[in-house]
Amino acid sequence: MAKLPETSPAAGLLPLTHGGLTLSEGPARRMWMIQPYPGREAGLDAALRDAHGIGFPEPSRSTGQRGGRLIWAGRAQALWIGTADPAPGLAQHAALTDQSDAWAFLKLEGAGAEAALARLTPLDLHPSVFKRGHAARAPLGHMSAILHRRSAALELFVFRSMARTAVHEIGVAMRSLAARAAV
């Protein structure tokens, strides 16, 4: 079989800059969905602390340190993002699914990023409300996205199949904001 080239979900689409905003693709990372089995939440939390030094995130929050982090991604699930895979022993307490190729990882940076996303999601993303380390599962246009604030950037995760749609929709919002500012 021919050797197939590996491409990132938003290859050829990003980065994109309009006005003071830049949408770029996050670095390639190992991504796993970690879903604790019923009643095993405490065991999973302890095993995560042992193996990686981070706990399972509270709803709408994230945890992390160098090497790996967890972003809450819905009821009883968190997305592992790291340079390596999570410890296999966690499988005693949770269902682990390798989703590294399943998510498009986008980063929106610049003053007014919240205003651009306000056109697409009903969340209040103002920095005084949606603070560093806050996470949400919410609609982005018609897509189901994970949103997370990490230092200067708003991180967005959408299903890989929606990468082009997400880039288009966020791009339109960025472009129209920049156009209004220029009038």
Binding site: P59, G74, R137, S144
Partner: peptide
């Protein structure tokens, strides 16, 4: 059902 949110 929280369809486009947490799935709860």
């Amino acid at each position: 059902y929280h369809e486009t949110g947490c799935g709860a």
